[in-house]
């Protein structure tokens, strides 16, 4: 096969330039600046600053509080990813079988996707509101005194529920299209081999969905780590107090509320490294075991 290519260097560089500039200005420059700031403690107005080498990092790593937030973030991300993937898969499998009014069903299930995370958080605040929220009242029937914003675990539960709920539609859309791309002939052949729908799902359908599931896993982990910021912010009403928060939210609390530029830069550098490791892990390790057909 003949490789299409450019004869000179000028044109491709020119075509790439707009994108490269955007990446440089909005990603590389801030990243470099964050790394630089993380070695200093500086006056927010920019008058004084002291070079402290790795003190911002060692301070974080030895802080019991930072570890607590990190542990919560991991638990939160795993729960949100697991719940939103599994519920979306269940809904997609069921919706795939619906023939009458299929489009209406699908549209209704996708609707939630249009809700922005802060709005989702606000709806969560109303649903779980102390004393007056419908879910709070429902739980009270079972003798569970649910206290959003007071009890750590209750607030954590509300965060997981709202964040997972908000993400289900995206997963649903992808799973559904994944299911519909499985050839009818494969399904029919499987039907002859085995009558059990559950067995057929795990032996045939699920492996064929694996590429979609892997892609969604990446998307969902990123979502629960970063995009849930708005949900967390609304649910803790901007003042976390003794409530749970995620690592990304802590960067905001320390940097934007507390004006600690060095400390929050170090936190965001840690997050950058985390994302880097996650990406390498996902593409090196998991990628090999999944076969795209």
């Amino acid at each position: 096969m003949k490789r299409a290519g450019f004869n000179q260097l000028g044109l491709p560089v020119m075509l790439l330039l707009p994108q490269l500039i955007i990446i440089a200005v909005f990603f590389y420059w801030p990243a470099v600046f964050a790394i630089y700031s993380s070695f200093y403690l500086q006056d927010p107005f920019g008058f004084g600053s002291t070079f402290v080498a790795l003190e911002n990092y060692t301070g974080l790593l030895s802080s019991a509080e930072y570890r607590k937030v990190a542990v919560f973030t991991v638990v939160f991300s795993l729960l949100v990813t697991f719940l939103s993937l599994s519920i979306a898969l269940l809904l997609a499998v069921k919706a795939d079988k619906v023939i009458r009014g299929a489009r209406t069903y699908r549209t209704l299930l996708m609707w939630v996707y249009a809700v922005a995370p802060p709005v989702a958080g606000f709806m969560g605040v109303m649903m779980f509101n102390q004393g007056t929220g419908p879910i709070t009242e429902f739980l009270a029937l079972f003798g569970w005194e649910f206290k959003l914003g007071v009890n750590f675990n209750d607030t954590a539960l509300a965060m997981v529920v709202v964040a997972a709920w908000n993400q289900i539609p995206v997963n649903f859309i992808f799973f559904l299209s994944g299911l519909q791309s499985i050839p009818q002939s494969v399904k029919e052949a499987a039907m002859i081999d085995n009558r059990s729908g559950v067995r057929r799902f795990w032996d045939v359908t699920f492996p064929l969905l694996a590429p979609t599931a892997f892609f969604l896993l990446v998307i969902n982990i990123t979502y629960s780590l970063f995009d849930t910021f708005g949900t967390v912010d609304t649910l803790v009403k901007g003042e976390p107090g003794n409530n749970p928060m995620t690592l990304v939210y802590k960067v905001y609390v320390d940097g934007f509320r507390g004006n600690d530029l060095g400390g929050s830069s170090a936190q965001s550098v840690i997050l950058m490294v985390l994302v880097l490791l996650l990406t390498v892990f996902q593409f090196r390790l998991i990628d090999r075991r999944i076969h795209y057909t």
């Binding site: 509080e65 007071v150 009890n151 750590f152 003042e239 976390p240 107090g241 003794n242 409530n243 609390v253 320390d254 509320r257 507390g258 004006n259 600690d260």
Partner: peptide, 20 residues
Amino acid sequence: FYVQIRDVMNREYGRILTGE
């Protein structure tokens, strides 16, 4: 950094009152 000091107080006071 008094805003952060207040955040620490709020966090610990919440923990006192919830028995943590």
